[in-house]
């Protein structure tokens, strides 16, 4: 990512001025904050992948003699009640804590985009049915749905992921529908129809790329919400089970120490959740603003 956008060559600017439209430059090159946040999130993914290399201890390595300690040279963030290194657990926790939301939002986005594009394209009774179904689904809080699913399949990471994958479909579809409807009403869509282009091709090759900036923005924001929701499920003991390392679970297991005046486990996990959620939210808002600006 070199900063070639710094000095804009004048012929390009002249052409842009003439056409009265912003040049098609990527958001990340125009927006330093968005770029920084993207790099930060990329680094987090690297941390998750390279956890065995980066973590000073194994996540389940106990040292009863050094239990519930504050930060020290040996344990940079201290240890938990079983004497496990908190930094290592935080680093390993990145894996499950990020994987959950990414899977949830990935599945929900694919479903939502498919439903929205197909219902906007086909219209009529199908559209009304999809609209009704999504409203019904939307009225169930994701957390309740997760509890119901866990009650059926049992506690663990699978139940909540399945539940939230479904619960987030209306959440994403609701924002994308008006965008897709507006795009559908553009004259170029009528023109392509008249030229014999199939509905499938129009949806996939024309509508989808044009609503993509909005998809990207709203999915980023939804990622933060999913992260909090999944952490909450783990916190109440229905999600990821001990002894696995996961931030929501860490907040929960750290409570005993917290009451004893040793906040390190809960605090570090809380901060981790908070930082990621704030980062994806700001990035999402920036992307949404850029998409809005680019929209005609």
């Amino acid at each position: 990512m070199t900063s070639t956008g710094l000095v804009t060559p004048s012929p390009r600017r002249a052409r842009r001025l003439r056409s009265g439209q912003p040049a098609r430059r990527s958001v990340l090159r125009q927006d330093r904050v968005a770029l920084g946040l993207t790099i930060f999130l990329g680094l987090l993914v690297l941390v998750a992948l390279l956890a065995p290399v980066l973590a000073p201890y194994a996540p389940d390595e106990t040292d009863i003699l050094a239990a519930s300690q504050g930060p020290s040279g040996a344990h940079l963030l201290g240890t938990d009640a079983l004497g496990r290194d908190l930094l290592s657990r935080l680093i390993y926790g990145t894996r499950l804590s990020l994987l959950g939301p990414v899977v949830v939002i990935g599945v929900a986005t694919v479903c939502a985009v498919t439903l929205v594009l197909s219902s906007v394209w086909i219209g009529g009774r199908y559209d009304r049915f999809v609209g009704k179904a999504l409203s019904v689904l939307f009225s169930f809080p994701g957390l309740i749905l997760a509890i119901v699913v866990v009650a059926i399949v049992g506690a663990g990471i699978t139940g909540p992921i399945v539940a939230f994958s479904i619960a987030f479909i209306p959440y994403i579809a609701r924002v994308l529908r008006p965008v897709a409807l507006r795009e559908r009403s553009m004259t170029y869509v009528n023109a392509l129809e008249m030229l014999g282009v199939s509905g499938w091709t129009i949806c996939v090759r024309h509508l989808l790329p044009n609503i993509f900036p909005f998809v990207r923005a709203h999915v980023t924001i939804a990622l933060g919400t999913a992260l909090v929701d999944l952490a909450a499920v783990s916190y109440i003991g229905l999600g990821v089970q001990a002894p696995a390392a996961e931030w929501g679970l860490q907040i929960s297991t750290g409570q005993a120490d917290l009451l004893a005046g040793k906040p390190w486990e809960s605090l570090t996990a809380c901060v981790a959740v908070l930082v990621v959620v704030i980062a994806v939210n700001i990035l999402g808002e920036r992307l949404a603003a850029a998409a809005q600006k680019e929209g005609r």
């Binding site: 009528n190 023109a191 392509l192 008249m194 024309h206 044009n210």
Partner: peptide, 14 residues
């Protein structure tokens, strides 16, 4: 075939 009134929305912008 048809040519529409508004030249600004009759082509895929991308």
């Amino acid at each position: 075939q048809m040519v529409f009134q508004d030249p600004y929305s009759s082509l895929d912008p991308r």
